[in-house]
Every structure is written in C-alpha cells, then in structure tokens.
Amino acid sequence: MSIAASVPIRDAHDLSLAYTPGVARVCEAIATDPEVAHDYTWVSNTVAVVTDGTAVLGLGDIGPAASMPVMEGKAILFKQFGGVDAIPIALDTTDVDEIVETVVRLAPSFGGINLEDISSPRCFEIERRLVERLDIPVFHDDQHGTAVVTLAALINSARLTDRDLQDLKVVISGAGAAGVAIMKILQSAGVRKIAVVDRAGVIHPGRDDLNDVKRWLADQTAGWARPGSIADALDEADVFIGVSGGTVPEEAVARMAPEAIVFAMANPHPEVHPDVAHQYARVVATGRSDFPNQINNVLVFPGIFRGALDVRATRISEDMKIAAATAIADLVGDDLSETYVIPSPFDSRVATAVSRAVTDSARREGLARRPY
C-alpha cells in the first residue's frame, strides 16, 4: 500500500497551492460550509477500515497489530475493485465504548466506516451505536457483505431449481455476525422458513442458554424452527447455509430435499466438502476460490461503498443491500448453471452494477445528499 498525491508539486507555485497559503482558502470554505469538504478533500472517496483484531479471518483473536495485514489487504481490494481509497485502522482496545468513541472522533476524516473482524456479539452493538451517531455509511462487512452475496447466490439458485424464495426451507449453521445478517436479509427478501443452528442445536424460544442476540433469533424464527439437531433441521430442507466453521455429517446432508442447495462457506474447510455435497445437492457453493460458485465479499463492499460515496449517502439501508444482491444476481443472466450462480470476483461489471443499484436505492429512500 501507498499514498500518493493526485496532483504534481513541481515548483513554488504548485507548493503555494498544495500547502500554504493556498490551503487556507479551502479551510475557510469548509469552515463556512462543512459539506464542501466532500469536494475539496479526500473525504468523498475515503473509507476507514476499522478492527480490534478479535475475529480475524479464520485466525480468531490475534490482536490489532497482527490484524493489520488483513486490513491492508481489504484496503487494496477497495481500490482495485471500487476505486475507493481505504485506510486500515487497528484499535488497541476491545471495549465497546472506547471503540465507538474512537471511531466517532475519527469520522470527520472519512466518507464511510467499514467495520472488520470484530467479534460477535460486540460487533452488533458497535455497528448499531455508530449508525445512530454518525451521518455517514457504517458497514460491518463480516455481517452485511456476506449476507448480500449469499442472497445473490440464493436468488439464482432458486431460479435454477424453479423455486420461489418464500417457499424455501433454509437452515443457517452459525449464529455469529454472518449468520445473523444472513437471516435478516433473507427475511427482508421474502424467505419465511428459516432455522438457525449453533453448537447446541436449533435456536428456539424454549432454550434457556441464549444471549440477547440468540433470543432475538429465536423469536424471529419461531414460526418455523423446531427443537433438534442440525440433522433434524436439515430433514427435507431446501437450503443449507454454513457460516460456522463446524462440520455437518454426510448423513444429515442426505436428508435434504431433492435438488438441494448447499452453501458451505467456512474457510479453509467447508462445513460440507463439495465432493460430498454434490452427491445430494444440485447447487454447491463455498467461500473458496478453487471450487465453482465462490461466495466472496469482494463482490459486495467495493461497489456498495462506491455507490454510497457517490451520492453522499447518510447510511446503508436494508433496501440498498437487497438492491446490491439483485444486481449481482442479474449479471449471471442466461448463463445460469449449476456451476455459475454467482459472478466471478474478477468480473469487471460487478462493482459498477452494485454501485448503480445502491445509488438508485439511496435516492429512492431519500438517503442521498447528492440527489443527481
């Protein structure tokens, strides 16, 4: 990574514009109207990638210093795929109050905040409080990026298997950040029959070992979820979505409905190995690049922030996320097949399509400060 000037400084005249006395005029303009900071500073195109290093990739709680390479990698992807400048910020605290206060104080330097690799359930409260206090987009990619790309793949998988979203019987393995966000976006998209499973089995209102987040999940899925193991939940289920890192027995997958859909997204070891899943499922996707149908967040976050920044959105709404998922799904078009339900991360159309969908949605919802 590097930071480079967007204009040359070749002589004393250039220096007088780039620094004193020229910058004083810009400072005065911003002091008079803070909104022009988006026109005359890097704010309009710069995102903070913020972590505390407590839930890094598949590495877990490795601390802020060790998390920095991942944050730098994220910043590179922002630039490569969305043209968005991103600055990695690793915070040496795991205290929710301290993280929120620190980000709020840093926020004037950025056009958006991408939260990354913060452990559950703290990540939910941190995001919620930042959304409440800031008037710029705040996006926890481990939650919402995963949820958006999962919905995109599911839209096309349902189309391929001639199913309606509202009729799907879905089992989500994992009740962390990704699992909760996937459940939310699937409900918003019309899926009604969802069961969420953790290490103790199906999450339901009768359990007495649930934290606040899992109690909320239990209430939201009470109309369909029934007590039991993951094998019980998968009996005649249409869809398995794995974001847990656990292992699902082959005999449980065998109990799924004909032409099942299996998204085993744990890395590096999917909950169900694709060779096993293919014996029982028509569509199989993973989080890995060495199998077809890679469900990868890079399809989402560059375009979402590109669109949000372009219209100076005040936040990223559920409708904007669904619009992004639909745009990604639509790119597959008539090429839809069992091995192609989601575009490649290197499909150059993705970020543009997502960005346009997000800007259109933001304008419809009145969340765009730049309405044109």
Rank of each mutant, 00 (worst) to 15 (best):
G176A: 13
G190L: 08
V196K: 00
D167L: 02
I194G: 06
Q166L: 08
D167R: 12
A175T: 13
L168A: 03
I182Y: 02
V196H: 02
G201S: 13
A189V: 10
V191T: 06
A200G: 15
A181E: 04
G174M: 11
A175D: 09
I182C: 05
D164E: 14
I194K: 04
I182L: 03
G201K: 09
V197L: 05
I194L: 09
Q166C: 07
V197G: 03
D198M: 07
Q187T: 10
R163K: 15
V170N: 00
L165S: 09
V197T: 03
T161D: 01
V171Y: 03
A178G: 09
L165V: 12
S188Y: 10
I182V: 15
D164C: 08
G201Q: 08
V202F: 04
K193Q: 14
I203Q: 01
R192K: 15
K193I: 00
V180E: 11
K193T: 00
I172N: 04
R163S: 04
A178F: 12
K184T: 11
I185E: 04
D198C: 08
S173I: 02
G176I: 13
I172P: 03
L165Q: 11
V202D: 02
G201C: 12
A181M: 08
V202G: 05
R192D: 06
V197I: 14
A195E: 02
S173H: 14
I194T: 03
K169F: 00
Q166W: 12
A181D: 09
R163E: 05
R192G: 01
V196M: 04
L168F: 01
I194A: 07
K184V: 12
V180N: 11
D198Y: 04
A177G: 06
A177R: 08
A189M: 07
Q166K: 15
V191P: 01
S173Q: 15
D162V: 12
